[in-house]
């Protein structure tokens, strides 16, 4: 419990430090945000002035950050340059990213662990080699190549999946992008699990369990699997953090307006409040994910303790 409280207090400190650093980073980005807003259409000087005033762009960094914090304490995350509240933007975008991330994560976990165990149990057979070939392929193909190919073949040629669209809703609009997102992590998970399972199958306690006459099902399903999952669980928990951070490429290719796209666009548009709001939320997620890893690991292996 004290462990949890300590971690939470750390998170609060990290929040203030990081938000200032990120604010400062968007502040020093080269180029004028109003110019970025206008594209190559020169805005009238009076309009530029009005916009700069509205968004406090002429103030020094700490005054700007002060305005931001003052708003934050009143529950106002600020607005972007077109006046859209950051809170609304995040509220629109999170559900998309969460749906995509969880779908991908479940695929990673279920298929990854399944393939890993399968390959380990059928070690040296064609099944093992096929899984190996598949995982090498999945880790070596860049995600955008995979995404474009899947989109062209499955979406355009065969029309099995929608090419794009949140309005398609879950699951139709999410399955294909989630598969693309999951491909890399899935391969890693299955490799991790395979190696661990093979190791553990040779372990003394397994020999003991078999000698005691336990069924193979119970030996593999309970004893081996539980001990083999620690690296995979660590990986999966951290990966969930990554996935919830959104995926700029996949969200763009499949037109799923999630948090990754929002951050990408905000950085390009130098929209300080949006960048800080989103990245701070992301940092909190990462922190939560790492706490989760620790807790899960001690659950899986009681010898791991944090107090």
């Amino acid at each position: 419990m004290t462990y949890l409280v300590r971690r939470l207090l750390e998170a609060l400190l990290v929040f203030f430090g990081i938000s200032l650093v990120i604010y400062a980073m968007t502040y020093v980005l080269p180029g004028d945000p109003v110019a970025a807003l206008a594209g190559d259409r020169p805005l009238a000087p009076s309009v530029v002035r009005a916009l700069r005033e509205q968004h406090h762009l002429d103030d020094p960094l700490f005054v700007q950050y002060g305005h931001y914090l003052a708003g934050l304490f009143q529950g106002d995350l600020g607005t972007d340059f077109s006046g859209r509240p950051v809170a609304d933007q995040m509220a629109d975008r999170w559900p998309v990213t969460i749906k995509l991330a969880l779908t991908a994560w479940v695929i990673e976990a279920v298929v990854g662990i399944g393939l890993g165990v399968l390959a380990a149990l059928r070690r040296g057979t064609w099944t093992d080699r096929t899984v190996l070939a598949f995982t090498i392929g999945a880790t070596s193909v860049p995600v955008f190549v995979l995404a474009y190919t899947a989109q062209m073949v499955l979406g355009v040629k065969f029309g099995l999946f929608p090419v794009a669209g949140t309005t398609e809703g879950w699951p139709a609009g999410y399955v294909l992008p989630a598969l693309c997102v999951a491909a890399f992590g899935l391969a890693s998970v299955s490799r991790l699990v395979r190696a661990e399972v093979i190791d553990n199958l040779r372990a003394d306690y397994v020999r003991t369990a078999v000698a005691k006459g336990l069924t193979r099902r119970r030996v593999v399903g309970v004893h081996v699997l539980r001990n083999s999952l620690i690296p995979a669980v660590t990986f999966l928990a951290v990966d969930l953090g990554y996935l919830l951070g959104g995926t700029v490429i996949i969200e763009g290719v499949f037109n799923l307006p999630g948090i990754g796209q929002l951050l990408f666009q905000a950085v390009r548009g130098h929209a300080g409040p949006t960048v800080v709001g989103v990245s701070t939320a992301l940092i909190l997620i990462f922190l939560a994910a790492s706490v989760l890893v620790d807790l899960l690991n001690s659950l899986l292996d009681p010898r791991i303790r944090h107090d």
Binding site: P162, A164, G165, T167, N255, P257, Q261, G269
Partner: peptide, 11 residues
Amino acid sequence: VLAGCSGGSGS
């Protein structure tokens, strides 16, 4: 790039 995103009921 700056603009938002999303789609429609593609069919």
